[in-house]
């Protein structure tokens, strides 16, 4: 079986300073893969090199067997992406942003139905800027799902959310997982990763220090809890974490 997402030896440097080095990732169909690491460890760079929004200095990446550079138009009919920065126009309404996004795809999902599923029906006529943090993140999941994707990339979906909002988003992701969607996500929350991810990779200063399942990570570290295992593997003090 061909891997849905495959990256081989990705390297990328900015102005001579390395961001990632020899990162290789394989994600099978229907798997949820978590990319972990401290801020600046190279998570976003890795995702961007895989999606083709950044050109890797070395190494190669394919998604659904396609080169994201050469086959952008075909590939991104089948891939949904949520960006770390919330990039939307000032004063735009929820329905307008959804409509604009839907117009980009040949087989777009019914965004009204998606908004209903994510509890945003009442916010259709609301400016995006007036949504609460949790609502906005759910909207960005909706946007990522509008192409009816087989694969979704989610970059720090729950950062900056309170506990309740995180749980809301978490529930959404579990549903997607059950539907068999392949997901590559980055996260700072270990409970989330433990519950959602089939496999994880821990990045440290742009290099992979661990790749495997959550239980393998726990076993490899000799710790009892996954959070402790993560900290040990990522080799940083608790106080350094945000």
């Amino acid at each position: 079986m061909v891997n849905t997402i495959e990256a081989k030896n990705l390297c990328k440097a900015y102005n001579g300073i390395k961001a990632i080095e020899n990162v290789s990732i394989e994600v099978g169909p229907g798997q949820v893969f978590g990319l972990l690491g401290a801020n600046g460890a190279g998570k976003t760079t890795t995702i961007e090199c895989i999606m083709g929004t950044k050109k890797a200095d070395r190494g190669e990446a394919t998604v659904l067997g396609l080169d994201p550079y050469r086959s952008r138009k075909i590939l991104f009919e089948r891939v949904g992406v949520q960006f770390q920065e919330s990039s939307y126009q000032e004063k735009i309404l929820v329905c307008e942003l959804c409509e604009e996004t839907a117009s980009l795809y040949k087989n777009a999902a019914d965004y009204g139905e998606l908004l209903r599923r994510f509890g945003l029906s009442e916010k259709v006529k609301c400016p995006v800027s007036e949504l609460s943090g949790g609502q906005r993140q759910r909207l960005f999941i909706v946007l990522a799902l509008i192409p009816n994707p087989e694969v979704v990339f989610l970059d720090e979906l729950t950062t900056g959310l309170d506990a309740r909002a995180r749980r809301e988003v978490w529930k959404c992701l579990s549903e997607l997982k059950q539907k068999g969607m392949t997901i590559l996500l980055t996260s700072h929350f270990m409970d989330e990763v433990e519950a959602l991810c089939d496999r994880i990779m821990i990045l440290k200063s742009g290099e992979s220090v661990f790749c495997g399942t959550v239980s393998e990570a726990v076993a490899a570290s000799g710790c009892e809890k996954f959070e402790d295992a993560y900290l040990k593997l990522a080799d940083e003090e608790v106080g350094e974490r945000v």
Partner: peptide
């Protein structure tokens, strides 16, 4: 639109 990364968002669409 560039600053808000709206242009960049289009790069991961068809």
């Amino acid at each position: 639109y560039r600053n808000k990364k709206i242009l960049k968002r289009f790069k991961v669409t068809p």
